[in-house]
Nucleic acid binder design. Structure first.
Length: 657
DNA sequence: GCCAATCATCGATAG
DNA sequence: GATGATTGGC
């Protein structure tokens, strides 16, 4: 391996001695490359790959890094343990569940199941009833989650984030308690439990801590600015046996405040370790100077100054453009034409990305892309594994694996006519608590759904022997479920082929439990996603959140308008607006050379009303005129130009504004 | 008491 | 477009 390709600061990080090390890495400064070299270097120094733990934010990031390490030091690099905090926690908790009083065969609920369980608890406790409108189940779960992820009391979370429910702290707490009891009784964890329980294990059980941390000789954490209190605690405790903890991050790119992340973790990190080493990576290898000039100006517009100046190694390039468009239709038109123009100019679509604040911002564009036959892959938003029919099939598999899974019963029983929420819950709970957890269909003789339940019970019996063979089991379940689909969904036909993906995923797993819990925290890829010949022609569509750490030659940023980006929810909240600014910073710094921002004059906003035209993210940027070139999209001319300045005037008078 | 159908309201980002 | 509150039927 050659260290020649690294600059001095990167080399210092790569070859750092043991101990705590903070690497502050601005956008595009070679953070990934540094981490890759660090891991490779450790292996070359004789550290066993299995003793290195690389915690990243997404599975995608972990895999990419390990690929690159493997390219340098060989396939043994695969033994490096990598992944998200949640995935790591899952593995550790499987081994130490007993210690914490949990069954080792626990399963993991995704967000939707967790919400449903909260919903059931809420109605059980009677908070759903009339009187005053109570928080919806998703909100209740949000509050509970925020409380554990930020170490704040329910009351504090309510006062800070949901003042309208400030008087209901007791109710939230009661729901939280019952919810927690139920999870443990049923042997299911939600995402937060994975972190909470791992932290508890490491904090309160010295033997487990010693064992886990001595297996993790070197702990590296990527994107540390986006960790929350629990994750930071886990990282520190996990490295307690040796203190070899390297964290990498950029406080200016903190964009997960909404789920409890705190920049304090990275800012205060040095206080934890008196002899910490700190390395700053400041030379930007990714972008041209004009892109960075805009990025710097964006940061300057933040209330909390970060005093960061990105310096380009690449030199000059075109100015970023702000293209004014009328509405989303116009925007889709402008972006499609721009993508094609860039392709014609030699930038393949695979080196272009369209980024946006919220997943739905790209809907209209997606229809245009289909018309234009531009293949794309979308990241963020609704995932394949979250589609209702996929979750249905998985619920059946869960029942095979664990007949006491009350939430799976709840979901499955909901398919049958005449069988509603109450009865489903009753049946599910009864089975979960029975000595022999089977569905006794006979007792529903005379009911409309008697025959359906008999069939279900028979099928489950026939699948039970397959529990040791994930693929056969999943295939059998899917085959039966296919037949039921038309009675559950009007658009069953469209959903059918998605089910093919499940057996393929199952093939990669030795056990049903491993299949199910992986699927819960690491959503399935759509095996049917249209894959045209060669990856060359696939455009990336992504939420800004999911674009983290990635880069493209050309970046198109959508919906720069109040209510779009920034989100309507942030407009009246200073700290939320700060996060919107950092989001814009992240988006801008994804671009290597071409950066096109579209600014629609009119957007259909969801959320709080009273959103006017304009983009309050761009307004406070000083010298914006010098930093970007302004264009207007003219749908008639089919090109962006300054020629149709009167377009808006005409439109305004047309709309009488 | 429970279920299905209807109307009103609120809506993001992710593991 | 989903969730929740309401209504009307068994």
């Amino acid at each position: 391996m050659s260290l020649d390709e690294l600059n001095e600061a990167q080399r210092a990080a790569v070859q750092s001695r043991d101990g705590a090390h903070l690497v502050v890495a601005g956008a595009g400064t070679g953070k990934t490359r540094t981490l890759v070299h660090r891991v490779a270097w450790l292996i070359e120094q004789g550290v066993a790959p299995g003793q290195i733990v690389l915690l990243t934010f997404t599975r995608r990031a972990a895999e990419e890094m390990l690929d690159r390490v493997a390219a340098q030091v060989g396939p043994e690099a695969r033994a490096v343990r990598g992944g998200t905090f949640h995935a790591f926690a899952l593995g550790a908790l499987r081994r130490f569940a007993d210690t914490l009083g949990w069954t080792p065969s626990f399963t993991v609920m995704d967000r939707e199941d967790a919400e449903d369980m909260v919903g059931l608890v809420r109605s059980e406790l009677g908070y759903a009833e009339g009187k005053q409108k109570f928080a919806r189940k998703g909100t209740v779960l949000d509050v509970l989650s925020r409380s554990v992820n930020t170490h704040k009391t329910i009351q504090e979370v309510l006062s800070d984030q949901y003042p309208q429910y400030g008087a209901f702290a007791d109710a939230f707490e009661a729901i939280g308690r019952r919810y927690a009891e139920r999870k443990q009784a049923h042997g299911v964890m939600d995402y937060d439990d994975l972190l909470v329980l791992l932290a508890t294990l490491l904090r309160d059980h010295p033997e487990a801590r010693r064992k886990l941390s001595s297996e993790a000789h070197h702990v590296l954490v990527d994107e540390f600015q986006d960790t929350n209190r629990l994750q930071a605690e886990i990282a520190v405790l996990l490295s307690s046996a040796h203190g070899n903890l390297m964290v990498v991050g950029d406080e200016a790119q903190s964009i997960y405040g909404f789920r409890g992340a705190s920049v304090r973790n990275i800012l205060d990190f040095p206080k934890l370790f008196p002899d910490i080493q700190i390395t700053k990576l400041e030379e930007n290898y990714r972008s041209t100077q004009p892109v960075l000039d805009l990025a710097n100006a964006v940061l300057d517009s933040a209330r909390e100054g970060f005093h960061k100046r990105l310096r380009a190694v690449r030199g000059e390039g075109p100015l970023p453009r702000i293209v004014d468009v009328i509405d989303e239709h116009d925007q889709a038109d402008a972006v499609v034409k721009r993508i094609l123009a860039l392709r014609a100019a030699g930038v393949p679509v695979s080196k272009q990305a369209v980024l946006f604040r919220s997943a739905y911002h790209s809907f209209l564009l997606e229809t245009r892309l289909v018309e234009e036959e531009i293949a794309f892959k979308k990241f963020g938003g609704m995932r394949f594994g979250e589609a209702a029919h996929i979750k249905d099939a998985l619920a059946l598999v869960r029942l095979v694996a664990n007949p006491r899974d009350a939430m799976a019963w709840f979901r499955v029983l909901g398919w049958f006519e005449g069988l509603g929420e109450k009865t489903a819950q009753k049946i599910g709970d009864a089975i979960a608590n029975a000595d022999d957890p089977v569905l006794d269909a006979a007792q529903f003789k005379g009911r409309k759904y008697h025959a359906a339940l008999l069939d279900l019970a028979n099928q489950l019996d026939s699948w039970a022997p397959l529990v040791m063979e994930p693929v056969s089991c999943v295939e059998a379940v899917v085959a039966w479920y296919r037949e039921r689909m038309p009675s559950i969904y009007d658009d069953a036909k469209r959903r059918l082929k998605d089910l093919d993906a499940l057996p393929l995923v199952a093939e990669r797993h030795q056990s049903i439990e491993s299949f199910l819990s992986t699927v819960a925290i690491d959503p399935i890829e759509d095996a049917n996603a249209d894959r045209p010949e060669g990856d060359d022609e696939i455009l990336t569509l992504s939420t800004i959140h999911s674009s983290k750490g990635l880069e493209w030659e050309a970046v198109h940023l959508l919906q720069l308008a109040d209510g779009g980006f920034p989100s309507a929810w942030s407009l009246d909240d200073d700290s939320a607006m700060e996060e919107e600014i950092r989001l814009l910073y992240v988006a801008v710094t994804r671009a290597r050379r071409e950066l096109w921002l579209t600014r629609p004059h009119f957007v259909r906003t969801r959320g709080p009303t009273g959103v006017g035209p304009g983009c309050s993210l761009l307004e406070p940027i000083e010298h914006l005129d010098d930093l970007v070139e302004f264009l207007r999209h003219d749908p008639e001319a089919g090109a962006d130009s300054a020629a149709s300045e009167d377009l808006f005037r005409r439109l305004r008078s047309f709309l009488d504004m």
